[in-house]
Design a protein around this nucleic acid. Structure first.
Length: 644
RNA sequence: GCCUCAGUAGCUCAGCUGGUAGAGCACUGGAUUUGUAAUCCAGCGGUCGGGGGUUCGAUUCCCUCCUGGGGCUCCA
């Protein structure tokens, strides 16, 4: 006999050789939704048999760990269907991911119809309820078993030692896998294949191109339906859709991919954001410059862009006095601003800001609305400081980012420390000791600030580590927004120095690149998705939409409009002869902060009726009172509608 | 750049297996003068993304290019 302690702390006695499944079914019932268990904190299949006393804790399908197992098993189910329908397909890897799973196959590209066919086959296997069996094999046996699949052999070479490993079998399908898995395929009922894409073996574009199939999987019908609903809701936030509706920007193929045109409404957003940034940076002690959008090749060779970032730049233009490139970053020119005169320690930190555009040759397939573009409007700046000043400068930039975000109502973001990848030195300036020192410095600054962050290898800029602030878009893609980057290379490359307080020329100038508002394009995209177009009043393209009940009240409406305009409030008037219901319906699309309704009563009493975007309404507001309140709301840059 | 799906009026979409196109909204004109998510009538509007091919005939089938969505890679 052996004693098994269940999670609640009660100990049961069982005969040796009993499986976890038997115990769990006994205690929790067959329909508990249990998919696996922790045996002494180690994940095991339910078929695992016990030989000694231990602690057993069930893993239910609706727990995080359980869903991971479920999704992993669903990936196997997918591979089972694919290999059956396409016998030449070679499965490679198929991990669980958030909301679902994917599996990469070497096979001929497939389309939507295939996806439905595969889905159907998977459903069949769910109904057949194959038992999922775990088996242990020696290394040599595994090689034999997977001899026709070079990918699996590669995995065996790499991960499976002499002790061998396990395979999981369901029906005719067998996959090399450590598990654990759900006990049988009937647990995998609530899945849906979502898309296919190309992926590379080991993520390396020089290796075989594979077909990746994505799916989602949930323990219950409600879970799956909920997720589908959630995705539908999210797509309503899509800035591309709202951007078209609100006439924020356009992209015209005659201009080019990734080159958005800011339409008047979008330009208002952009310039309000810029105005705010100018004020903020004045407070923080920045000076502003403007530099050209292109410069000679030699400058970008000095900066290191051409050796390390050439792929990201537009191709060169040959002129009679040399070869020019469009700038992908402002830094080289700002370094020249720094060097334009002899600098003293009294000048530092020197904070050079620029509002302008840079041009990057992003891969055409990555371009997406305003989220990824080739012309980037930036609220860029470079800070030149001594080593002692770095911590304070990073801190004030983290603070600035947090202040901006709270002003714009962003709450859901995370900090990421982006480090270099010592394995791919060609992407970076190859000075390992400088990388280590600068990364350690940045890490300890972040630790001192008490900001939570994750670390990411291979996400650094070519000249140094950075702090990126990460967001997830409405459609679930993670993107970097703001960035604070340390640059240990510029001082040498450009010979940046200052005269220190001993009268000695000092070359220890650290450059901090920072863009707290991301690019205007990306920022506005996030802002649009976050607010679903219902922007805070101070940036709203239309702050007040005046609507008349009939044309008889046009005069009063025009007067009110003039009063608002005098206060620099953005106002539009609709005194057409349409009905009030229709006007409200029509103007909702443009999402004005407030609609003001003017009719008999208002004219008689010198009042307005104020209707907010959410439908809340306040009637009989004295015009003067309305003016004062909306002025206050705008000047305080409040993220909330205060008038209703 | 690669894989995949798509491309019909300014927008949202319909158009069965080939016989050169429709609706709603928007826009213009008229009627109506309206109290909170669509008043009525009429009109304007499309080389069916571009080019090539198959065919008596192509929006429809094939090829190719362009553009867009999703993904890979890359990145603010």
């Amino acid at each position: 006999m052996l004693s098994v302690e269940l999670a609640e702390g009660n100990v049961h006695q069982y005969a040796k050789g009993i499986s976890i499944g038997e115990i769990i079914y006994n205690v929790y019932g067959k329909k508990s939704g249990c998919v696996a268990a922790l045996v002494d904190d180690c994940e095991r299949d339910l078929s695992f048999t016990l030989t000694e006393s231990c602690k057993v804790e069930p893993i239910f399908g609706d727990s995080e760990a359980g869903m991971f197992i479920l999704r992993h098993s669903c990936a196997h189910l997918l591979a089972q269907a694919v290999t059956e329908l396409y016998p030449s397909a070679k499965p490679t890897i198929g991990p669980p991911i958030d909301h679902g799973f994917y599996y990469d196959f070497e096979m001929n590209p497939i389309g939507d119809e295939d996806l439905r066919k595969i889905e159907k086959k998977m459903q069949e296997h769910v109904r057949s309820n194959h038992t999922i069996i775990r088996e242990e094999y020696e290394n040599a046996e595994l090689r034999d078993m997977f001899s026709s699949n070079p990918y699996k052999i590669e995995i065996i070479d790499e991960k499976v030692g002499d002790h061998g490993s396990t395979v999981y079998q369901q029906g005719d399908f067998t996959d090399l896998c450590l598990g654990p898995h759900v006990p049988s395929t009937s647990h995998l009922r609530w899945f849906k294949l979502t898309s296919t894409s190309q992926a590379y073996w080991r993520g390396d574009s020089s290796l075989t191109s594979l077909v990746r199939i994505y799916g989602m999987c949930y323990p219950t019908k409600e879970g799956l339906k909920g997720r589908i609903k959630q995705l539908e809701e999210a797509s309503k936030r899509d800035h591309k859709k709202i951007g078209r509706e609100m006439e924020l920007y356009m992209i015209d193929e005659q201009i080019g991919k990734g080159l958005p045109v800011w339409l008047p409404n979008g330009e208002i957003l952009k310039s309000e954001i810029e105005k705010y940034a100018v004020e903020t940076e004045e407070e923080y002690g920045y000076v502003r410059v403007t530099t050209p959008v292109l410069a000679k090749k030699e400058l970008f060779e000095t900066s290191g862009h051409l050796p390390h970032y050439a792929d990201g730049m537009y191709p060169p233009m040959k002129m009679d006095d040399g070869t020019y490139y469009l700038k992908a970053m402002n830094c080289p020119m700002h370094h020249l601003v720094y060097k334009s005169k002899k600098r003293s320690y009294r000048d530092l930190p020197l904070r050079v800001a620029e509002y302008g555009t840079v041009y990057r040759n992003e891969l055409s397939g990555t371009l997406a609305g305003l989220l990824r573009v080739r012309m980037l409007s930036m609220n860029d700046a470079h800070i030149y400081c001594t080593l002692d000043q770095i911590a304070a400068e990073v801190a004030s930039n983290v603070q600035m980012v947090q202040d901006y975000y709270s002003k714009f109502g962003f709450e859901d973001y995370s900090f990421r420390l982006s480090l270099w990848d010592p394995e791919s030195t060609e992407k970076y300036i190859d000075q390992p000791e400088n990388w280590k020192a600068t990364e350690d410095r940045l890490r300890s600054i972040m630790d001192d600030l008490g900001v939570n962050y994750t670390e990411a290898i291979g996400e650094a800029a070519f000249y140094g580590p950075k702090v990126d602030i990460q967001f997830t878009t409405a459609l679930g893609r993670e993107e970097s927004m703001s960035t604070i980057q340390l640059d240990f290379a510029a001082k040498e490359r450009f010979g940046l120095t200052y005269m220190d307080d001993k009268g000695v020329e000092n070359g220890e100038v650290m450059v901090i690149h920072r863009a707290p508002l991301s690019t205007h394009e990306r920022f506005v995209a996030f802002l649009t998705e976050h607010w679903i177009g219902n922007f805070p009043t101070w940036i709203s393209p239309i702050q007040v939409q005046i609507i008349t009940i009939s044309e008889r009240f046009s005069e009063y409406a025009t007067e009110l409009g003039s009063k608002l305009k005098e206060q620099r409030i953005r106002v539009a008037i609709d005194d057409s002869d349409s009905t009030i219901g229709r006007k409200i319906r029509t103007h909702r699309k443009m999402r004005p902060a407030y609609m003001v309704i003017i009719g008999e009563e208002e004219v008689a009493n010198g009042t307005v009726s104020v209707r907010a975007r959410n439908g809340d309404q306040r009637n009989g507001v004295l015009t003067e009172h309305f003016l004062q309140e909306i002025k206050d709301e705008i000047s305080s840059r409040s993220p909330r509608l205060s008038l209703v």
